[in-house]
């Protein structure tokens, strides 16, 4: 497992308490799982994603991620309608390990309240929190 100093936490995205990330891309928000979470889980073998058109409030469970020996539920960092899902994860769940912020994205959300982004942590805040927990 990575040391905290080895973690990749880009500064162009926001982070939720449960290690989902959110990135504003035009008027949609792309969501995925951060480097810390993928590293803790280890080899990811299955990602269960919602369907396009489903809507969730902020903080509601929208996906589950399975590694060989663990399952975690993922909570939507920003409420809204799911407008795209990363179907590549069906065949290649390992993308979440290899490229958590790019090819391993989960869903795109049409946010009902874009300002919910502001409640999320910056990479610096996220790093502080991880250090505190260590």
């Amino acid at each position: 497992m990575k040391e905290i100093s080895e973690l990749n936490l880009p500064d162009d995205i926001r982070y939720a308490e449960d290690h989902e990330w959110a990135r504003l891309e035009g008027d949609r928000i792309r969501v995925g799982l951060d480097d810390y979470a993928q590293d803790q889980l280890g080899d990811i073998v299955f990602v269960e994603l919602p369907q396009i058109g489903d809507t969730f409030e902020k903080g509601k469970e929208f996906a589950t991620v399975e590694s060989v020996k663990a399952v975690v539920e993922c909570y939507l960092p920003v409420g809204g309608e799911i407008i795209a899902v990363n179907t590549a994860l069906e065949e290649s769940p390992e993308l979440v390990n290899k490229s958590p912020y790019n090819d391993g994205w989960f869903v795109d959300v049409n946010p009902s309240d874009p300002s919910e982004m502001d409640d999320l942590m910056t990479n610096a805040e996220c790093l502080e929190k991880l250090k505190g927990a260590d």
Partner: peptide
């Protein structure tokens, strides 16, 4: 596929 099983997913 042990993640279906009780020792990992417990009540689920």
């Amino acid at each position: 596929l042990a993640t279906r099983e009780q020792h990992i997913r417990r009540e689920k």
